[in-house]
């Protein structure tokens, strides 16, 4: 039977189910490092414990997905759907992430040093996402709540149909989605965002643009929806 030895799990001979079963057995405050995962999908999903889990190297799809509590660190890159539906805890990725980062995220924090693919922060319902690099198209699509901070550029249709969430972009915005509007960040926001970036080891851009909802899509008969 697989066990955790001195805070280390060598995953080379373990199935994904066995790895996740070991993680499910962690107690709050436990620290564990996973090795030899070879970018396997679905690692550290469905966890409630407030343990610290470090994945040596790359992680596949859905790393730290459906979690409520753990702090997960990926020292390499991560695949699509990383931290999807995260409720609390965190995911920190040293490299880049695929599409759908933090999709439907509800709470907690995600920090990505590199860039992400399309649909970053899609349908976010809460929480805080910080991307050191750039994000792909349709990011923050139908974002409901929470904050998405992008230090680099944003792809097309940023913030399409967003509700109450707030987006900040340091670089260029290829285009805004329906019902999204861009305004300069306030001095107070700039200061807070700079501190936020530095606290997480991310170099802040010289300034941020805030993207919020114009709320013209909130009501079916407001008229503006017809152009969306």
């Amino acid at each position: 039977m697989a066990t955790v030895t001195e805070g280390l799990i060598d995953c080379a001979e373990l199935s994904t189910r066995e790895v996740n079963t070991l993680l499910r057995g962690l107690a709050d405050g436990d620290q564990v490092r996973l090795t030899n995962l070879d970018a396997r999908h679905n690692i550290a999903v469905g966890l409630h414990c407030q343990a610290q889990i470090t994945i040596d190297g790359d992680a596949g799809y859905y790393v730290a997905g459906l979690c409520d509590g753990p702090d997960v660190v990926v020292t390499g890159h991560a695949g699509n759907g990383a931290a999807e539906n995260l409720q609390s805890g965190s995911l920190t990725v040293a490299g880049d992430v695929g599409a759908g980062l933090a999709a439907t995220m509800r709470g907690g924090r995600v920090v990505v040093a590199g860039s992400t693919g399309a649909r970053c922060g899609v349908l976010m319902k809460g929480g805080d996402v910080l991307v050191g690099g750039s994000v792909g198209a349709f990011s923050a699509f139908m974002m409901q709540r929470g904050r998405l901070v992008i230090c680099g550029d944003a792809g097309e249709h940023l913030g399409d149909s967003l509700y109450e969430g707030k987006i900040f972009v340091g670089g260029e915005i290829a285009s805004l989605g329906a019902d999204a509007q861009a305004t300069p960040a306030t001095a107070e926001e700039e200061a807070e965002l700079r501190a936020h970036c530095e606290a997480h080891g991310v170099t802040p851009p010289s300034s941020f643009t805030a993207v919020t909802s114009m709320r013209t899509l909130y009501s079916f008969d407001a008229g503006a929806w017809k152009s969306s």
Binding site: H41, N42, V45, G65, G100, A103, F141
Partner: peptide
């Protein structure tokens, strides 16, 4: 929305189903 936020086609759905299986053992 009509499209799922974290998977798009059947190739991704394979992995999504496995994620749900992992979360429910």
């Amino acid at each position: 929305p009509v499209r799922h936020p974290d998977w798009l086609g059947p190739d991704d759905l394979v992995i999504k189903i496995e994620e749900l299986r992992e979360a429910t053992q």
